[in-house]
Computed example of a mutant assay.
Amino acid sequence: MNNTPILVLGAGELGMAILRNLAKRAALFPGTTLTVLLRPSTINSHDPSKLRKLDELQSLGVRFLPSDLATDSICDLSRLFKDFHTVIGCTGFVAGRDIQLKLARAVLDASVKRYFPWQFGVDYDIIGKGNSQDLFDVQLDVRNLLRSQERLEWVIVSTGMFVSFLFEPSFGVVDLTQNMIHALGSWDNAVTVTTSEDIGALTAEIIFAEPRIVNRIVYTAGDTVTYAQLADIVDSVLGRKMQRVEWSVPMLKDELAKDPGNLIKKYRVVFAEGKGVSWEIDKTFNAQHGIEVCSVKRWAQKNLK
Rank of each mutant, 00 (worst) to 15 (best):
Q178I: 07
V249Y: 03
G222C: 03
V269D: 07
V234E: 02
D198F: 01
G274L: 01
R240D: 09
V249N: 02
E210G: 09
K265G: 05
A287L: 03
L184A: 15
T195M: 05
A231F: 04
P260A: 01
G222V: 04
A228T: 10
T226C: 00
T226D: 04
S248Y: 05
T192M: 08
N286D: 11
S295Q: 05
W187T: 14
V214I: 14
D282I: 10
A209D: 13
E197R: 12
E246G: 08
D232T: 12
S236M: 09
K283T: 13
L184H: 09
Q229S: 09
V245C: 13
N189S: 13
H182G: 04
E280G: 11
M242C: 07
E205N: 10
I233L: 05
V269E: 06
T284C: 07
K241W: 07
K283Q: 14
D198T: 03
A183M: 10
A201H: 11
T224M: 08
W279N: 00
W247M: 12
Q178D: 14
L230D: 02
G274K: 03
T224P: 03
A190I: 13
R268K: 14
T284L: 01
P260C: 02
V214P: 05
K258W: 03
T220C: 12
A257E: 13
A190P: 11
S236A: 14
G290S: 11
S196Y: 15
Y267R: 10
Q243F: 11
E255V: 13
C294M: 15
D198H: 01
V270F: 08
V270E: 08
L252G: 00
A228I: 05
V269I: 08
D223I: 04
L184W: 09
A228E: 15
D198I: 03
A272D: 07
F285R: 02
I206V: 13
L256S: 00
L176V: 09
A201L: 13
T195G: 04
R212N: 13
D188E: 15
R268D: 08
Q178G: 11
P211N: 08
G239N: 05
S248V: 06
D198C: 00
I291R: 01
V225R: 07
K241V: 15
E280N: 12
F208I: 01
T224Q: 10
K241M: 12
I181V: 13
D188F: 11
G200R: 00
G239T: 06
L238I: 06
L176P: 06
I199L: 08
V270W: 08
D232R: 12
S295K: 08
Y219I: 03
N179K: 12
Q178A: 15
S278W: 07
N262W: 04
N215Q: 10
V237K: 03
V245E: 14
D232F: 04
T220V: 13
A231L: 06
A228W: 10
A287M: 11
E210L: 13
V269Y: 03
T220R: 01
L263M: 15
R216F: 07
D223H: 02
I207P: 00
R244S: 10
M242T: 07
L230I: 03
V214N: 12
S196M: 14
I206H: 00
K253C: 06
L238H: 05
I213R: 03
D282L: 09
N286A: 09
A228N: 10
L238K: 07
T195I: 06
L202E: 02
M251G: 12
